[in-house]
């Protein structure tokens, strides 16, 4: 067992080395195509590094919660958040700011989709026939897959989703919501419109089996959020510099990772409606 002791010693020695400081670090959870994150966002990091003149690193995360935690603990200083996760993160880190949002995020929307077996047709409002069906959200912390759909469900039916539907699941992801509703595992689902469009274009959606039955009004979604203390740590005006660099990002190859056609300015106030909604349905205290 002596090797165990040696390994223990080595680990204890190595631990401080594992926690090195201090490049400028960012993270991002794109709402579609999460494969090869390191490779694709590594390029974004290189771009930022070149423009900002500091070392920039990207760490991949898997969930909104992990992204928020990393932001809160100052492991990342900049993050590409969803609408809700951005609000949560900024509440936890006083002084942090929404810098920029995607062009599309100014008027984002969610689709309610239904399996063909339900016989539901597109309409101007959610049909009464939804009651008693099975329903799945996407990820629990998603704005377009959970927050907004739940808000409009409550508004329409005046009750919590689990009282409207016979069963409410969380598929964990927009793609899986589509797959499950298409297979009839769930009859209804709520999904990010941009993921739906892109899956449709890729031919992964069979229109005879699943279709959109309602779309929500628009809401603000993804945005870049930065910690308030970056100016002290990376030099005065650093925050503005980051904003400018992001707004001037035009390389389609880099933008495809998000995927957005470009970034436009955003502020914390833009996300007031999201915060109100989250409070209204009890996701925020």
């Amino acid at each position: 067992m002596s090797f165990l002791r040696r390994a223990l010693a080595l680990v204890l020695l190595a631990l401080p080395l594992l926690a090195r400081a201090e490049p400028f670090v960012f993270t991002a959870i794109p709402d579609e195509d999460e494969s090869k994150l390191q490779q694709r966002f590594g390029k974004v990091a290189d771009y930022l590094s070149g423009q900002l003149g500091v070392e920039v690193k990207y760490i991949p995360v898997k969930s909104y919660a992990a992204a928020i935690t990393a932001f809160r603990n100052d492991q990342v200083q900049l993050a590409w958040f969803g609408g809700l996760s951005g609000v949560q993160a900024r509440r936890l880190v006083p002084g942090s700011e929404a810098l920029a949002q995607g062009y599309e995020d100014q008027f984002f929307k969610s689709y309610f989709i239904a399996n063909a077996s339900t016989g539901l047709e597109p309409g101007a409002q959610l049909s009464e026939a939804l009651k008693g069906k099975t329903f799945t959200f996407g990820s629990k912390g998603s704005t377009s897959g959970r927050l907004m759909p739940e808000f409009y469900l409550r508004e329409r039916f005046g009750a919590a989703p689990d009282q409207v539907f016979s069963r409410v699941g969380f598929s964990g992801d927009h793609n899986r919501t589509i797959a499950q509703v298409q297979a009839g595992a769930y009859e209804i689902g709520a999904v990010n419109y941009s993921v739906w469009e892109s899956e449709l274009a890729k031919g992964n959606v069979d229109p005879s089996k699943v279709k959109v039955i309602w779309e929500t009004p628009t809401f603000p979604d993804y945005q870049w959020t930065i910690r308030g203390d970056v100016d002290q740590r990376f030099g005065a005006g650093f925050k503005d510099k980051v904003r400018d660099v992001l707004l001037n990002l035009t390389d389609p190859d880099l933008l495809a990772s998000f995927p957005r056609q470009g970034f436009v300015p955003a502020s914390n106030a833009d996300y007031q409606p999201v915060e109100q909604t989250a409070k209204a349905i009890g996701l925020l205290d």
Partner: peptide, 10 residues
């Protein structure tokens, strides 16, 4: 073991 970029335990 992966490195932990930019983490300082506060």
């Amino acid at each position: 073991l992966p490195q932990t970029p930019g983490f300082s335990n506060g």
